[in-house]
Write a protein that binds this DNA or RNA. Structure first.
Lengths: 188, 188
DNA sequence: TATTGTTATACTCTATAACTATA
DNA sequence: TATAGTTATAGAGTATAACAATA
């Protein structure tokens, strides 16, 4: 078998494994949030509102990678349950700002832990160092996949956007591998 | 910030990055296959038939993680285009074996390279070592996510006991696997 | 009675375009 | 005219349950 053939197969293997892990993980996480009656998108909206404060629907749509039409539906559902409210912009009445209500905040408070518990449970299979490595490898893929905004998703307030694994190295209870992916080598 | 808090945020970060990378990658790969008029599931069926030979619909459903009802629809579409054909099992007439036709094989031949090109292009962002590491980390996650069938990889069907960072320095040329293209396309 | 595959239904997501109201 | 949001529609994907033919 040729060298190129083999490399190709390795790439396919990495891809399919990545896909399978991501899909099973998200299934498990969504299941954890489901009892609260929140879809992943709805949760994302609430979370974004919490971290950014009131924003326009379009901004939400962009942040979460949905169309404005989808965002209308998502907000509709959240508004119907009283978790967000809409308010026209005072001066430019084309805009609608979406606000998180107290109820919405409460839902988030009770949902977020269930969600992150599920995520932590999955990620517990990896050591702290491995988690960081996984994130870094994925971020690297995102450089090709999403060159635009490959610098932070819907990050929480304090963005530690700089290269991770450097800050306080004593936060993980498991083996902190010192040989942390020092490479970050030459693209191409 | 507490130790647990931080660990939690790291887990969330790893999770969201994984999800984003997987979803953008699959979008890109599906786009590469789309011109051929094949959905990911349809491609998966053809590929499975190629590597395993004729199988029952239920076997296909299990292999690809779809319900038998879904599989009926998928096979319907493929059969309508003449890429597979159904045939009742001779002795137990409840079973239907699905065969890849010559046309189906031809479609696969012209589609598979486009698909794997797309995957290789994405994975080219990583070094060979990083690709292997990514696959290994994901497979590790699958141990919790899918304990059943988390065995089938390309080069370590047994070695899961040791910790990484040590392996994959060498090229094990060979591993002539008959089941090339075991790519199990992911649910979206 | 159990199993294979089909049909029917319903609900979610996604993708688009046409529409409104504002600017 | 351009933009923000809404509505309508159509297509996939998913999840069930009821059903027919076969065992």
């Amino acid at each position: 078998m040729s060298k190129g053939e083999k490399k190709r197969r390795r790439a396919l293997d990495a891809y399919s494994t990545l896909q399978r892990a991501a899909s099973m993980a998200s299934a498990q996480v969504e299941q954890a949030v489901h009892p609260f009656g929140l879809s992943a998108s709805q949760f994302g909206v609430l979370e974004t509102l919490q971290s950014r404060g009131p924003v326009h629907q379009q901004e939400l749509a962009e942040a979460l990678g949905r169309s404005k039409a989808q965002m209308t539906a998502i907000i509709d559902a959240l508004e119907a349950r009283g978790w967000v409210r809409r308010e026209r912009h005072a001066t430019d009445r084309r805009f609608i700002s979406v606000y998180l209500t107290d109820d919405g905040r409460a839902v988030l408070v009770s949902t977020a832990p269930a969600r992150s518990d599920a995520i932590v449970a999955i990620m517990a299979e990896l050591s702290g160092d491995q988690r960081a490595r996984l994130a870094r490898l994925c971020r690297r893929l995102l450089r090709v996949l999403d060159p635009e905004q490959s610098i932070e998703p819907i990050d929480e307030s304090h963005a530690e956007a700089h290269d991770d694994a450097a800050d306080d190295a004593h936060d993980d209870d498991e083996l902190d591998d010192p040989a942390v992916e020092t490479t970050l080598p030459s693209p191409t």
